[in-house]
């Protein structure tokens, strides 16, 4: 066992635990409302909560800003997060790797699988417009991107990917119930394994409840959580495809 490394929030002195929180309660401002906000903050582990602001933000709703000292500490030594080990590459760098090292289009097929009807994730990564000012894979000359949209069955996705000779399959799961996103994801990995071509293709898993560790556990090559930009995915795919081509 390594030594514990306890950390607390920092305001202006080591371990003072200072944090701010803001929230709305469904009550009008009043002395009782202020006290309710204090109790609410206290329940979140804030000592000496100071209600810095209480304002009516709608009829029957109050907006609060509260400062307080968090009593919670985190053992940083015990935190382990596998990260996708790819360096960030710019759009131009990615294009140039494809052009000079891979020398053909990199083919990517994406879909939102199972009952999930939400294409927002897969669209953000694949469609031209992209996300957060970062253009999608469609915008790259070096990528051939197929977006199959939502409610795609694993069998369809696998068949399409095989037919177009995909280098990578992107699976998006946005809305989920009782961990069905994990089951759907794992089922695709199992399907491709049973068809005997798991080694030929990169499998990427993405969505607001997905992280790299979960994706690896399920048998994917990488997992991408919220805030992932298309260029993050593109960089990962080209680096892996380049390694294969050069092998």
């Amino acid at each position: 066992m390594s030594r514990k490394e306890l950390i607390r929030a920092y305001g202006d002195r080591q371990n003072d635990g200072m944090v701010q929180m803001s929230f709305v309660l469904p009550i009008a401002p009043s002395a009782r409302a202020r006290e309710a906000a204090k109790v609410f903050a206290g329940e979140h582990g804030l000592r000496d909560p100071l209600v810095a602001t209480m304002e009516a933000c709608a009829e029957g709703y109050a907006f609060f800003v509260v400062y307080g000292r968090s009593t919670h500490a985190v053992d940083f030594a015990a935190i382990e997060v596998p990260e996708v080990s790819t360096r960030a590459l710019s759009h131009d760098e990615i294009e140039s790797i494809i052009k000079s090292d891979i020398q053909r289009k990199v083919v990517v097929v994406g879909a939102c699988t199972g009952a999930d009807a939400h294409t927002v994730g897969i669209d953000a990564i694949l469609n031209y417009k992209g996300y957060g000012g970062d253009k999608g894979l469609e915008s790259y000359k070096g990528f051939e991107a197929f977006n199959m949209g939502a409610q795609v069955e694993n069998e369809q996705l696998a068949a399409r990917a095989r037919a177009v000779g995909a280098d990578a399959i992107l699976v998006s799961q946005v809305i989920t119930q009782r961990d069905c996103h994990k089951e759907n994801g794992k089922a695709l990995v199992d399907l491709i394994k049973s068809q005997g071509w798991r080694d030929e293709v990169l499998l990427l898993f993405g969505g607001p409840r997905i992280d790299h560790k979960l994706a690896l556990d399920l048998g994917f090559d990488a997992g991408f959580g919220p805030g992932t930009k298309p260029s993050d995915v593109a960089a990962f795919v080209v680096e892996r495809v380049r390694a294969r081509v050069q092998r």
Partner: peptide, 11 residues
Amino acid sequence: AVHNPMLMDRY
């Protein structure tokens, strides 16, 4: 860049 606007964001 985080989510669709909530009551306090709009306020």
